[in-house]
Nucleic acid binder design. Sequence first.
RNA 1: GUCACAGUGGCUCAGCUGGAUAGAGCAACGGUCUUCUAAACCGUAGGUCGUGAGUUCAAGUCUCACCUGUGACACCA
Length: 563
Amino acid sequence: MDFKQQVITALAPVVGQAVDEATINKLIEVPKNSSLGDYAFPTFILAKTLHKAPQQIAVDLVAEIDQTPFEKVVATGPYLNFFLNKANFSQVTLQEVLTQKAHFGDQDLGDGANVPIDMSSPNIAKPISMGHLRSTVIGNSIAKILAKTNYKPVKINHLGDWGTQFGKLIVAYKKWGSEAEVKADPITNLLKYYVRFHQEDVANPELDDEAREWFKRLEDGDEEATKLWAWFRSESLKEFEKIYDMLGVTFDSFNGEAFYNDKMADTVNELVEKQLLKESQGAEIVDLSKYDLNPALIRKSDGATLYMTRDLCAAIYRKRTYHFAKSLYVVGNEQREHFQQLKAIIKEMGYDWADDIIHIPFGLITENGKKLSTRQGRVILLEKVLNDAIDLARQQIEAKNPTLANKDEVAKQVGVGAVIFHDLKNDRLDNFDFNLEEVVRFEGETGPYVQYTNARAQSILRKSGKTVDENASYVLEDDEAWEILKQLNDYPNVIQRALREYEPSVIAKYSLHLAKSFNKYYAHTRILEDDGMMMAKLGLVKAVSLVLENALSLLGVTSPEEM
RNA sequence: GUCACAGUGGCUCAGCUGGAUAGAGCAACGGUCUUCUAAACCGUAGGUCGUGAGUUCAAGUCUCACCUGUGACACCA
């Protein structure tokens, strides 16, 4: 429920001549310190029209305002501080959460519209790295946030399954590889061939010519080349699936680069028809100088198409297939200009949906300050990180809760949860230097901290032996419960903001704050004690658990009931 | 060189549309488990918010300049 409206309604009659309701709404703020109330109204802007000092205005307004809906309204300096009626707020909020359960916070902002999300997109024959983790978990979380606000996300894994690297890979495989090796451990060995190719072609540049030749054969539909390509692709996908399983991520489409091969000509033709294609230095480009952008390369001087051509083709295909409201691309920040160009070309083509193309960039992961590079074999393998995290979680369980049932399953939930949460808790655009100890930390501001908080809440509910019934009396008025109640009530706003900014970290931070408030309450208040308020307290515990689980689920993190 | 993004306590980061004494977590030090899971809680210490101007009643937040770091700058994706 929106308690801010109470404040607006109270203020409107007394300041109505000077400012309208919309302005009041904008000016009202939430004080940083809760001793200053729940909402505050600064009086500065009234000073000019009323010709009085802000402090005096605050004092005068307090005298005039109808205080009945509130616990109290006081003037503190130039501010009017509103304290809400805790009993009412508590009752209304808890009842709402307990009634709506996992649907608390659901909102219809999308009207069921499709929103394709380009995410994850690993390259065939290369391992999934920490860099792909970012795109995968950010995209997955945004998809869940979209679904909660009644959009229909379409998760597209735009696989890197085409390109000159396949020429290199075929050459390397034929020279140094074996079928048995690839079958045994596809990614490791394919990567090994690829890295070796890049080592050897420094001294033997003719390798590059061979690679080009093989890629040409692949493009021309040569049987041997196609067979190898399809085999590399399917073996790689099997490996990818193992990791996606661990992360709990699924996709609606695996249409990658190769999927657009036979659709590219239409896109290029359309550019020609619309007279957007120009020749420059032997290549064909779209001039974007009026957007202050570099020209976009559509066709190389040898006639081959490029990344941009393919993305343009895919953008148009997605519009025709999904009739999307927005089309999202969860891709690293270093490709910012690429997407600016993409939008500009679509605009030039006369499509009114150009601005619905939205690049959701994220920061770089480095190791010891250096950019990771597959070519040089400098990668952080996601599978290894996940397994390390799970092992560590398993050790923690042995140390702290050795009698726990299904330890392996919980270790997986906690370990993987830690890795996902670590990636989502900070602003997307922040770069971070990879540090295993930091990623798999279980204390402080981490995923396991939130999971643990929920497990404690669950434990209390189990031990109470009572069913929390949504129609009981849920009046709690102490300060520590109050902090929790305000946060519970704020959850729908938090989801809105996360959606508006395409920012899962908003949810992650919220879950940390809520967990912290609850742990504080837990430490100081005996819940399973019949002091006449036990049902109300259990209602609070249940509500916290529901919202923590929901918030974690929006991040793609699971919530073990015990840990 | 041009453009973009960033610069907050030892480290990692919050700070939404400018608003009341700048908040957490790690690390350090000191407390709290015979009672609901101590993966927790409480306390102490630690900051000229890169630098300098400007706009405003009010600037970590907006504008400009400079410094530092990172990234992008057509035939890779």
